[in-house]
């Protein structure tokens, strides 16, 4: 049960990193890509941002102890991140610090890092060969992979303390009471396909290319 919810948590964080990554990337490249970049992003913007809200919601509901420990112990980092972009990338920065501090299972971490380098190289090659779609998929994977990387490397722990081994928080210990998880599972199992389905519908409905008729919003 905890594993299922840990997976759900990872799914939402990975989705947030990949999808909001487009938003932040388009924002950073505003000068280079111009307003067309933002216009293309328009319909998805709200849908992308909510992945973070959902991820923190799952964190609170299914892993309340992890939520309390993680967010409050990284107070300044999360504060800076939140203020800087109201909630962007704060959790990412926090998680990446944990990885450097202690990796309990080096093999998956190394495999993951290799995969990360691999997809980034693939993105570069695909772009060079004029295949922007493949390059896009590869960079999206690069954004999502760190979540899998951190999750797999620390498993079965969720939060590793380098100062005091007794303070290390395993996934099972971080999870909410079984009664709470059961309740949430009853709700999530029918709902998750619907959530992902509506997101897919969003992407499908606006799959067309930009043209002069595309509503501009920025």
């Amino acid at each position: 049960m905890e594993f299922f919810w840990y997976g759900v948590l990872g799914l939402f964080f990975a989705g947030y990193l990949a999808l909001a990554g487009y938003d932040y990337g388009a924002g950073l490249l505003l000068r280079a890509a111009g307003r067309d970049g933002l216009t293309a992003l328009g319909p998805y913007f709200l849908g992308n941002e909510v992945w973070l809200v959902a991820a923190v919601g799952v964190l609170f509901g299914a892993f309340p102890r992890l939520e309390g420990e993680l967010i409050s112990s990284l107070y300044p980092a999360i504060l800076a991140g939140l203020v800087a972009a109201v909630g962007v990338a704060a959790a990412v920065g926090a998680l990446s610090q944990e990885v450097r501090a202690s990796v309990s299972r080096p093999l998956p971490a190394l495999l993951g890092l290799a995969a990360l380098v691999g997809v980034l190289l693939a993105a570069r090659v695909a772009l060079g060969r004029g295949r922007p779609g493949v390059a896009f998929a590869a960079t999206a994977a690069a954004m999502a992979l760190p979540v899998l990387l951190v999750g797999a490397a620390l498993y079965p722990n969720a939060l590793v303390s380098t100062v005091d081994p007794a303070a290390t928080l395993p996934v099972a210990g971080a999870a909410a009471d079984p009664a709470t998880l059961r309740l949430l599972s009853w709700l999530a199992i029918p709902l998750l396909p619907a959530l992902l389905g509506f997101q897919a519908m969003l992407w499908w409905a606006f799959r067309g290319r930009l043209d002069a008729r595309t509503p501009v919003f920025w």
Partner: peptide
Amino acid sequence: VGNVFGAPLAIETLV
């Protein structure tokens, strides 16, 4: 109180 208080919050974000 996260076991109890967190559940409606998680449901709110997802549902």
